[in-house]
Design a protein around this nucleic acid. Structure first.
Lengths: 241, 241
DNA sequence: ATGGTATAAATATATGACAAATATACCATA
DNA sequence: TATGGTATATTTGTCATATATTTATACCAT
């Protein structure tokens, strides 16, 4: 064992908190199915008694569980902590945060988004239900109606369209991943004043995407998506710099 | 507006907590780059003064930020809340929770991973540097050495190999995303007792992947990756149980 | 049936205090 | 000088007690 190559035999030690034990116990009960979505946990006071700890410590634990998406907390009579429905939303939010923190280049984001969005649209071409198609069509119709009244801000409808498209792929992992990648773009897009040309282009592209999905034409859908993303990401890129 | 079709004009209202405002303010500073990883926040006492709220409320907010993976908290002199390095681990942990709770299915995860991993290996075939290739080779060599001494546990070397491969794609977004998606799988694999057949297969596949990347043969690399993932994911069918 | 008020239950927040963890400074000893 | 021990200061962790706020329900009046 030379000076330069120190072998790591031990791990960092961290003293745990009492509240972590509470978190762990409640998690175990949730994962074991002893607590199901919608079930109410005992009140903070009761939990404090059961755990033999103070109410503050219990609240600490509950805040952690809430942040992990495992419980929701309601105030007032009949309130308390309730086991949450499992959702990919917290995962997506966290992935969004983590990506944001990394100071990623637009180029990397664009590239990653291209890969995932084209996969999504390919899957959507296979898997979209009538409901999905309807949702996509409605987003397009709403964008058209908005434009007809002179409102060039198509962002909201674009978000809705892309959300419906991603749902049509029937893969929640891709859904939350692409949402995390999209968020930076939509944030920027919403800040700029979109012109009517962009609105028109968005509507046209969305319609083409929908048509391709309806026709189960995955290759065409992927191609349109690529062009769509490249067009819009060039505009966002200009503004961001 | 008939009885059966009630138009939703309003959204559910929820009274916010004071601590959420603190969370938001700290997040804004982190995302704006005013607080960088490693930076220390003021003490709880000082934050309480700055926000004009009690220390309890500040602690609430800090617990949330900690659970979101944005800060780490240290006890004692020189302690306090420090801005965390972005890590895939909190995302993976949350993803694992959702898998356990069946909010997401293994099938969806596998499908998403297939898409992203094959894109990564395609990019790596174009972009890998000598350094990347060396790192991959070393992971393979380490796995071989381990196996030669009778240690069938190749998981660590597999993690290293895939990490090196993902770095070779030169896209931080894909790297981070795939690390988040991969970890639940490895955590499960590590809990199994892998047999030597699996170790051998991993080493062979990794070598084939490396060879394809060296040869800039993206199509071959993608094909090997697909087969590799399908082989292993069949053996880890139930992730996070 | 509708509206208003009181009450109870539960979380949210505050204040003050002590416990525990940790880094640093200082001193004694070999 | 290096090592070990102790004291001190700083900071988080937890506690006890209390009040504020939110919300559902019960009850009464119109």
């Amino acid at each position: 064992m030379s000076e330069n190559n120190v072998v790591q035999l031990f791990r960092t030690v961290r003293v745990s908190r009492a509240s972590e034990d509470i978190v762990q116990q409640i998690r175990s009960n949730i994962f074991a199915g002893k607590l199901a979505p919608g079930d109410r946990l005992p009140s903070e006071k009761e939990l404090a008694e059961q755990f033999g700890l103070s109410r503050v410590t219990v609240r600490d634990a509950l805040r952690v569980l809430e942040s992990q998406g495992l419980i929701t907390i309601k105030v007032g009579a009949g309130g308390g902590a309730f086991v949450a429905n499992p959702s990919a939303r917290p995962v997506s939010a966290m992935l969004t945060d983590m990506l944001r923190l990394q100071g990623l280049s637009t180029k990397e984001l664009v590239e990653a988004r291209l890969i995932i969005e084209t996969s999504i649209v390919t899957l959507a071409a296979e898997r979209a239900t009538a409901e999905d198609l309807d949702a996509m069509q409605q987003a397009i119709a709403a964008a058209r109606a908005g434009r007809a009244t002179g409102d060039p801000n198509f962002t909201r409808h674009s978000v809705d369209f892309h959300a419906a498209l991603a749902r049509a792929a029937k893969n929640q992992v891709l859904l939350f991943t692409v949402n995390s990648l999209r968020t930076p773009f939509y944030d920027t897009l919403e800040k700029l004043l979109p012109d009517d040309g962009m609105a028109q282009r968005a509507i046209e592209d969305h319609q083409k995407l929908l048509d391709a999905v309806v026709a189960h034409d995955a290759a065409q859908a992927a191609q349109v998506m690529r062009e769509h993303l490249m067009y819009f990401e060039k505009r966002v890129e200009k503004i961001a710099t």
